[in-house]
Design a protein around this nucleic acid. Structure first.
Lengths: 344, 344
DNA sequence: TTGTATGCGTTATCAG
DNA sequence: CTGATAACGCATACAA
């Protein structure tokens, strides 16, 4: 492979100094239009592309922000990503979307990225967040946890966050099922031991029933074994199959995500049963498919666009105005749709 | 912000040379277990993280491969991404997923990334691909176009590709509708002028009807204005609404993607009409939701997992064995499901 | 306005 | 086995 072309080569070709080329590229003020155009012309001809590693190494002040996303295939994040990109580009910052693997430590990844890209700020998106406070303190730039369940007892002054109150919202939708007369409500959940959003939503479920003094049947819980794809349609389908094969009695199903709800619907419909006549079913998140599915699915909609906007707002406040860390909790919206009916 | 810790600081702390530290990090053979452990210990204590920019700048031989994906929110790519990651990590290469914006030039991005990360190979995923041959030749590392419509007349020896024959597969599914007795088939498409997959699938449609000497009603085509989200549920919904509001006659709808088909179903169901009794509908791609939707949607399934595997296989052949460029065309699988019925 | 020289944090080459 | 030292490609303070 032929050696790559550098800024030096361009300088030689132009018969100018190396710094003049650099100035042309970064349209620095201290350069005449004339030489600048000349240099740029040569650059174009030569198909020269500056090496970003070299640049990042040298630079102190790069205006770039990274969004670290755990579970990039989760449709819940799709609309958020779009907003992040818009907002960050509006602020003339460079936007980096970085996928982090399920079994990867997001803080570790963040630390690397900060050094490599000289990040100005970070958004952590998705996943549960159980890290040593000590580790968190190593992050030297502002960061916001967006739609993340923080289960550890870390000092709230060390990070910012944007989320819904999963317990309360969960309670809302279970309350609705109770209003509709359902008392035997099965739950399709993620890993039982998982310190995650799944746990919080289950807590909401328990609270709802307990408040109404309805006894909880632990046999109505279906937990996921392989936790990596817990919130998928496929998993919802499997868990529902399992439930259908049991002899438990229930009139409603609470899937802890809309995707799971869709899978569950499929499993039910396959048996010839009807929704909501035979079973009522609800989801959580309010992703697009909950509206488009047939029947449309009753759910708690998280205001993802607003949440994404608020996330960036807090982040830029932190970066530009050096404000203190903030924690913003959004209200979910209970959307009643076709997938539920009252018990007669 | 306190100055970041470097390899130099570690060396000082350990009382060893700077290169010894480097050797410890990259577990180079030329270092004693003893000193290595000592150094690593200090590194851990100090929370030192090597700067990747510096490393990439220096390195000549980085075993890393990037997947450049256009339209990361397209569910069609979800399963492919998983396979790419697995296959690339199996080969002990580093996997980079890089999202490229709709209005970004993927080749430009690739060129930058090659320099920055010293890439060994590239996978281009999604989008249409209309680039100057000259530009393509600037890419100095092997690359494979995966599920991309190549519309330009570039020399096939310059790139590798993995895809289905969109024209033929499209014809297959339209043929099926014809077999079922449908002749008035509406089409929900992307941009009319777009040199993309949408065009190819439309060609298949035309061919199918023309072969059977059925006249084509141009009024049954619905094209997308905003091309950025052409293949989404939302767009399918809009286009179908528009179609329903027209006075055209049709008994079947061909949505050029499964997501669009879902949106179209919703629009139809909202009017109180039934699928497939009132309208038959088919999609394309074979993504998960086509199975889970109610009714399940007849579609052409692209063997995405195999295609992703073949993509990496070709890429590694190119990298490791320096084989010549290959072009692999997969067969789609026609899956007949609930969304269609025969005209009586 | 322009060019020269230095250093960003690493790895690799070469002596020791 | 270990330690200086020279690159890697670029941006910038400083000199011209």
């Amino acid at each position: 492979m032929m050696k790559a072309i550098t800024i030096k080569d361009i300088a030689k070709k132009c018969g100018v100094g190396i710094s003049t080329v650099s100035r042309a590229i970064n349209n620095h003020p201290d350069i005449s239009e004339e030489t600048k155009n000349m240099v740029m012309e040569v650059i174009k001809e030569s198909n020269f592309i500056p090496n970003k590693s070299a640049r990042n190494l040298k630079l102190v002040d790069t205006k770039t922000i990274a969004v670290l996303i755990k579970g990039i295939d989760n449709p819940f994040f799709q609309n958020m990503i779009r907003v992040f990109e818009e907002e960050i580009q509006n602020k003339k910052y460079t936007f980096i979307l970085h996928r982090v693997d399920t079994n990867q430590d997001e803080v570790e990844v963040a630390l690397e990225l900060i050094k490599e890209k000289r990040l100005k700020g970070i958004v952590f998106l998705g996943g549960s967040f159980s890290h040593q406070q000590e580790k968190l303190q190593e992050i030297t730039v502002p960061f916001v946890l967006s739609t993340i369940a923080i289960t550890d007892n870390v000092d709230k002054n060390l990070y910012s966050s944007v989320s819904v109150n999963d317990i309360n919202e969960s309670k809302k939708i279970v309350d609705l099922l109770l209003e509709y007369g359902h008392t035997k409500i099965a739950v399709l959940a993620a890993d039982s031991s998982d310190m995650s959003i799944s746990q919080l939503r289950i807590q909401g479920y328990r609270k709802s029933l307990t408040d109404k003094e309805i006894s909880i049947n632990e046999n109505l819980f279906r937990y996921t074994c392989d936790n990596s794809n817990a919130f998928t349609m496929e998993n919802g389908y499997k868990l529902m199959k399992n439930l259908l094969d049991s002899n438990e009695e229930y009139t409603a199903i609470y899937a802890l995500s809309d995707s799971m709800a869709v899978g569950a619907c499929k499993a039910i419909l396959e048996t010839g049963k009807k929704i909501p006549q035979d079973y009522s079913i609800v989801g959580f998140d309010g992703i697009d498919i909950s509206y488009y599915y047939n029947p449309s699915i009753t759910t708690i909609r998280q205001p993802v666009e607003q949440m994404a906007k608020e996330t960036t707002k807090i982040l830029f406040d932190l970066i530009e105005n050096e404000t203190t860390n903030q924690h913003r909790v959004f209200e979910g919206e209970l959307i009643v749709r076709q997938s539920i009916s009252k018990i007669r």
